[in-house]
C-alpha cells in the first residue's frame, strides 16, 4: 500500500469575475507522503493559499475547481458538503497566518478548542473535551493551560495564540495539516519555536504537513520537498536540497539570488518588475515578462514540469530545449 496522503492531478482553480473565469491555480500536480513536509514557496498572489483552500474546499462559492484531488485514496472533489465537513478539522486541519483574526474574538480560546472536539466526536462529553483540550495545550507548550483556556484571543501573545490555534488543529489527530504562512506574523524567535513544534509533533504523530510560505528560510528549515509556485503554476518541484542548491528554473534562481546574505552591504538584488496578477496573466510562462532568458516560445506557451532527476522537476522551456 502506498503511503500517499494527498495527491492532486492537474488541479485548477478559477474565480468568476463578472462573466469571465479568471484562473488562480493552473494544473497543479503535487503529492505528499505520510509523515513528510511539503512547502509551497511563492510570492503573494501566486495562488498558493488558494490551492490549499481548494483542497479543503473552503473557497468562496464563485470559485470553480477542476482536476483531481485525492486524500488517502478518497476523491475530495466528489465529496458532498456534509462529508467535507466531517473531514475538515478532523483528518485534515488548517492553521492560518494571523491567529488573531483566525479566532473568534467573542469566545474563550479553550471553548473554541472544545467546540471543535465536540463537533467531530459526538460521544465526548463537555468535561472530557475540556480535559483533552487541556492536554493539547500542554502538548503545544502553553504554560498554565487551565488558566490560558479561560482567556480570550486578544489577551494572549501572538506566539501563545498561534500555539492555541495549533492545539485546535491537532484536536482530532489529523493525518494532514495545512499551514498557511503559520509563522509570518511572528517574531523570529517565536517563529523558530513554532517551526520546531511542528517538527516535534510530526515526529511524534507521523502527520503530514503542507505549508505555504514566502520565506525561503522557513522552507529550508522544515521542508522535505519544495514546490515553487508562480502565477498559479508550479515552476519547480523537488527535494529541498535539489531545489535550493541546484535550482533548474530561472525564477527559483532569481528568488534565491534575492535573498540577503550576511556580509552583503548596499542594494539588495531584486527581481525586476511585478509579479502578474490573476487578471493580467501573460499567455505563456507567467515569469516570461521578468525573466532575463525569455525567448519567443516563453511568451506564447505555458511550460510543463519535466524531470531533471528522479526527485526533481522544473517547468521551463529553456530546460526542455537543453534536453533535446
Amino acid at each position: 500500500m502506498s503511503d500517499t496522503i494527498v495527491k492532486t492531478t492537474d488541479l485548477s482553480v478559477a474565480f468568476k469575475v463578472k462573466k469571465d473565469l479568471v484562473p488562480a491555480v493552473r494544473q497543479v500536480s503535487l503529492s505528499l507522503e505520510k509523515g513528510r513536509t511539503l512547502v509551497i514557496l511563492g510570492e503573494s498572489g501566486s495562488g498558493k493559499s488558494t490551492y490549499m483552500k481548494a483542497l479543503l474546499r473552503i473557497l468562496p462559492h464563485d470559485a470553480a475547481i477542476d482536476g483531481a484531488a485525492e486524500f488517502m485514496g478518497e476523491d475530495l472533489l466528489l465529496k458532498n458538503e456534509k462529508e467535507m465537513r466531517e473531514l475538515r478539522g478532523d483528518r485534515i486541519s488548517m492553521i492560518y497566518q494571523d491567529s488573531l483574526s483566525a479566532l473568534d474574538p467573542m469566545y474563550k480560546v479553550g471553548d473554541q478548542v472544545i467546540e471543535t472536539i465536540r463537533a467531530h466526536r459526538k460521544s465526548v462529553s463537555r468535561a472530557e473535551a475540556r480535559e483533552q483540550a487541556e492536554q493539547l495545550f500542554v502538548k503545544v507548550g502553553i504554560p498554565s493551560p487551565r488558566e490560558r483556556m479561560r482567556t480570550y484571543p486578544h489577551e494572549l501573545s501572538g506566539g501563545m495564540r498561534q500555539r492555541a490555534v495549533i492545539a485546535m488543529s491537532l484536536c482530532c489527530s489529523p493525518y494532514l495539516l495545512l499551514a498557511d504562512e503559520p509563522t509570518t506574523a511572528l517574531d523570529v524567535t517565536i517563529q523558530k519555536q513554532i517551526l520546531n513544534l511542528f517538527l516535534e509533533l510530526q515526529e511524534k504523530d507521523g502527520m503530514s504537513i503542507m505549508m505555504v510560505t514566502h520565506d525561503i528560510g522557513v522552507a529550508a528549515q522544515v521542508a522535505d520537498e519544495i514546490a515553487i509556485m508562480y502565477g498559479g503554476i508550479i515552476m519547480e518541484y523537488g527535494s529541498t536540497r535539489e531545489v535550493l542548491e541546484e535550482p533548474a528554473n530561472p525564477y527559483t534562481r532569481a528568488l534565491i539570488a534575492a535573498l540577503p546574505k550576511s556580509g552583503d552591504r548596499g542594494r539588495l538584488v531584486a527581481i525586476d518588475g511585478q509579479p502578474p496578477t490573476i487578471v493580467s496573466m501573460p499567455s505563456g510562462c507567467p515569469f516570461s515578462d521578468r525573466c532575463a532568458y525569455a525567448t519567443q516560445i516563453c511568451k506564447s506557451s505555458i511550460p510543463h514540469l519535466t524531470p531533471v532527476t528522479q526527485t526533481h522537476q522544473t517547468a521551463c522551456h529553456l530546460y526542455e530545449r537543453k534536453e533535446e
Binding site: L56, I58, R85, E86, L87, R88, G89, D90, S93, M94, Y96, D98, S101, A102, L103, D104, P105, E115, T116, A119, H120, M168, S169
Partner: peptide
C-alpha cells in the same frame, strides 16, 4: 471575517 473561514475549516455545521 476570517474567523468564519476558520470555523468552516474546523468542520462546524
Amino acid at each position: 471575517r476570517s474567523f468564519v473561514t476558520t470555523l468552516r475549516a474546523k468542520g462546524l455545521s
